[in-house]
Amino acid sequence: MSENQQSRRGAALRLTGVGRDFGANTVLRGVDLQVAAGEFVAIIGRSGCGKSTLLRLLAGLDRPTRGRIALGTGEASGSARIMFQEPRLLPWARVVENVEVGVSEAEAPAARRARALALLGEVGLADRAEEWPGVLSGGQRQRVALARALASRPELLLLDEPLGALDALTRIEMQRLLERIWQHQGFTAVLVTHDVSEALALADRVVLIDRGTIALDLRVDVPRPRRRDRPELGAMEEQILDRLFDGATTSPATAAA
C-alpha cells in the first residue's frame, strides 16, 4: 500500500458497551468491538438482529443509548461514509453530479467535477458520467453510489448490504471491485451482509451478532485474492452457520448461502 496521500490510511474504531433501545425493545445490549485502521470487517447476523442499527450508529445517523463509540486514532478525527442497501441516487442529477454529492462543497466546482470523474473511472463508469441514473442497471447504480461514498476519501466506509439486491454474477463482480478499491485506498471497511460466503470472500474478520451482542469474532487468515473453493473457507462457513443456528428456534432459511 503506498502512502503518498494523507487519507490513504483508514481510521481505527473502538466500541465499548454500545447499546441501543427502541422504546422497550433492546436491539443492541453491549457491543464491544475494536477495528484496526485499514481492517475489513464483515458483520453478519439474522434479519432484524440489529446490523443496520449498529451501522447507523457508526455513521452518526443515530446515537447509542449506552456506551461509547470512538473513531480515529487520536490525531485524525476520522471521516465516515455510509453506502446504503439502495443506491439512493438523485434521479434528477446526472451520474457525475451524483458523485459530486460526495465531494466536499468547500472545494471549487472544477475540482469537484474532476474528482467525481476520477472516481467514476475507478468504478468503470467514466463513459456514463452524463447519463441519468434512471437508465443505469442496478449494478451500475450501486457502483455510482460506491463512487459517491469514496469521493470524500473517507477513512471509514460503512456498507449496509449494498450488494443484497444484485444478481449473483453482478454481486461477484462488485465484490472484486470493492476489494480492489479497498486494497488500493486503505480505508477501514465495515460491511453488513447476510451472505456468509460474501463475508468470507472479503473480510479480514467476520463478526456475528446475535441477541444484541457479538456472538462470534472470527479472523479469516486466507491470502487474497481468495478462491471460493478454499477448504479453510468452507470450514469457517460451517462454523459460522453452526453458531448462527445454535439454539435457534426459527427455521434455518435466513442465512442459507
Binding site: 455513521a59 461514509r81 446504503f84 439502495e86 439512493r88 454529492v101 460526495g102 466536499s104 462543497e105
Partner: peptide, 16 residues
C-alpha cells in the same frame, strides 16, 4: 425520505 437521509449523511447543509 431515503434521499433526504442520504443528503444529511453526506453532509449537505440545509440550503444544499
Amino acid at each position: 425520505p431515503q434521499l433526504i437521509e442520504m443528503g444529511r449523511a453526506y453532509g449537505m447543509s440545509n440550503t444544499a
